[in-house]
Simulated scan of single mutants.
Amino acid sequence: MHGLGELETAVMNVLWDADEPIKVRDVLERLDTGKSLAYTTVMTVLDNLHRKGWAEREHRGKAYVYTPAWSREEASARALRDVLDSSGDPEAVLLHFVASGSDEETDLLRGALRKKRIRRR
């Protein structure tokens, strides 16, 4: 995910895949990074994600439970927005992006643009 490190992205994937708010220990148990991680490492990553605005937390009992601040799709759209804003030439980026899309993706984009035009009226 744009703007996140490898471990942060792995933790966000656990949060996105969870059906409910989860504790640090639950995140640690579900992480599959190929490395042995300490509880405090995962706790620090979740604290950083909360501070950066990627995760929300709520005190339940003696521990925090965490949820993603936005969906995986919203995060992807925000990453694309960041790329467009920092590119210097958003038109060129969009044209290259559209050229790289499959026919199905192009149809989805056309449909989304039509819906946006209708909402503007």
Rank of each mutant, 00 (worst) to 15 (best):
M1R: 13
H2I: 14
H2R: 14
H2E: 10
G3V: 10
L4K: 06
E6C: 07
E6D: 07
L7F: 08
L7M: 14
L7D: 05
E8Q: 15
E8C: 01
E8I: 02
A10Y: 10
V11M: 01
N13W: 03
L15W: 02
D19V: 01
I22V: 15
I22Y: 05
K23C: 10
K23I: 04
V24T: 12
R25E: 11
D26V: 07
V27D: 02
V27T: 07
L28D: 01
E29Q: 11
E29W: 10
E29N: 13
R30P: 03
R30D: 12
R30C: 09
L31S: 07
L31K: 10
D32G: 09
D32M: 07
T33C: 01
K35I: 00
K35L: 11
S36W: 14
L37C: 06
L37F: 06
A38I: 08
A38P: 03
Y39R: 13
Y39S: 03
T40Q: 08
T41S: 06
M43P: 01
M43I: 04
T44D: 14
T44E: 14
L46H: 07
N48L: 13
N48K: 14
N48E: 11
L49K: 11
H50V: 13
H50Q: 08
R51P: 01
R51D: 09
R51F: 04
K52H: 07
R57M: 05
E58Y: 04
E58S: 06
H59R: 15
R60G: 01
R60C: 06
R60A: 06
K62R: 15
K62E: 07
A63E: 11
A63P: 06
Y64F: 12
Y64R: 13
V65A: 00
Y66M: 01
P68C: 10
A69Y: 02
A69L: 03
A69C: 00
W70P: 04
W70Q: 14
E73P: 00
E74P: 00
A75V: 15
S76H: 08
A77N: 10
A79Y: 01
A79E: 14
L80H: 09
R81D: 05
R81E: 08
R81F: 13
D82G: 13
V83T: 08
D85I: 12
S87E: 05
S87A: 02
G88A: 09
G88K: 11
D89N: 09
E91M: 04
V93F: 14
L94D: 01
L94F: 04
L94A: 00
L95R: 15
L95Y: 07
H96A: 13
A99E: 04
S100T: 12
S100I: 01
G101E: 04
S102L: 02
S102Q: 03
E104G: 13
E104H: 15
L109Y: 14
L109A: 03
R110M: 14
G111E: 15
G111Q: 11
A112H: 13
L113Y: 00
R114M: 11
R114V: 15
R114A: 05
R114L: 11
R114P: 08
K116M: 14
R117Y: 12
I118C: 06
I118Y: 03
R119T: 07
R119N: 10
R120Q: 15
R121G: 11
R121E: 09
